[in-house]
Design a protein around this nucleic acid. Sequence first.
DNA 1: TAGTGGTCTAGACCACCGG
DNA 2: CGGTGGTCTAGACCACTAA
Lengths: 237, 237
Amino acid sequence: MVKYQEIAKDLRHRILNKLYLPGEQLPQEKEMCRTYNVSRITIKKAVDEVVNAGLVIKRRGAGTFVKAVNDDAVKELSMVQQFTGFTESNTGKSISSEIIRFEIVHPSAEVADKLQIDKDGFVYDIIRARYADKEPFVVEYTQMPLDIIPGLKRDVLLDSIYHYIQSGLKLKIQSAHRAIRAMWPNEVEQNYLKVDTSFPMLEVEQVAYLDDGRAFEHSISRHRSDKIIFKTLSIRA
Amino acid sequence: MVKYQEIAKDLRHRILNKLYLPGEQLPQEKEMCRTYNVSRITIKKAVDEVVNAGLVIKRRGAGTFVKAVNDDAVKELSMVQQFTGFTESNTGKSISSEIIRFEIVHPSAEVADKLQIDKDGFVYDIIRARYADKEPFVVEYTQMPLDIIPGLKRDVLLDSIYHYIQSGLKLKIQSAHRAIRAMWPNEVEQNYLKVDTSFPMLEVEQVAYLDDGRAFEHSISRHRSDKIIFKTLSIRA
DNA sequence: TAGTGGTCTAGACCACCGG
DNA sequence: CGGTGGTCTAGACCACTAA
């Protein structure tokens, strides 16, 4: 691990352990340079990481201050920093999947546009219900281009597609663009998730990208609203 | 505007105008240094802005590449960069408010904890219904500490609280922590938003912070699900 | 192995905040 | 006004990718 990450980790720990209290000013950047024996740009990069983690605030002309974030929120901030911003009530539970549909088709015009691929190409068209300890919590509709993700089999769908992409195909996932809405469940979701017509669902539509810039997945996930919360942190530019 | 922002703006425009095509490699950093006549760190900071805007991807050892993002998504990315990530179907409409409740009370234990204030202090307790061209779209439940936001009056609530905080009180808003869920509407929401018991709602719970680190607002907004989409972009660390 | 972006330095000047 | 963080330089070395 490089210097600025080490320093950022140290600052996070000091804040979480209340060595720096909410509202308190952190040491100035020049002083930190002496403390950690690094240049000022390195300190700046370290502190910026902690700003983006939501723990502190910088003000030109004034200093750097610890935010008054409550303890529960702080714990979740470390989660938000992960790739997904989801808090599912599934931690520690065993996840399994049921395959509802697994076909190869031409993409719809909409999906072809979102994935920026040709309408004449082929995509997997997958529908899965996912279970945590045999409790159903989400139905996922996924399309992925055949030529980017070759060799998909049923056993991969039963396990984790993302694991296959990263470990099996050695591809790297870079980012995801998401849109979140509330919805009613359709008939499929009512059946698999065991909810009635009026039960509210949280829909997450996602386009995900590899580190070469190609879109490799379009998916729509319809979650039972009692099983998921989406958390996010926005910092004003 | 400083150099790296100018360069970032130029790169964004080139990508949006297809001078750099999806999948295409951008000029290497050293070449950009010559083109823009700046140092490499400045180029790095400019390109990082474009990465965070979701338009390009950097790979050590390989280069910087334009993401295959579809045009609609690109347009919305510039919106996502704003403070709020919301796409309401309200652009260009006149927003008005109806005050349902406006009291000063002691905070609940939960709100006191989330705002990190004393339970013996006072907070405004506000409930508002908000309209776009007389169409109701959201009910907001807001608590704000009296000593941080003094002098709140009914006419401010009818207009914009955020405008009063920034222009009237000269305070600066730094960040917001949000949790998003799907829900049924309660009786108040059913009445004001003109929806029935089973209509799904998108709830956004928010704690907002000033640039001195103090939490100044806790709010819960219940949106008609047909009037709002929440958009977000996550990039893997 | 050649070429890419990632990290880091030591120092300079600037914009902004607060007393 | 002194002190803060913001920007920027010119250069060095490193880690990683791809051929």
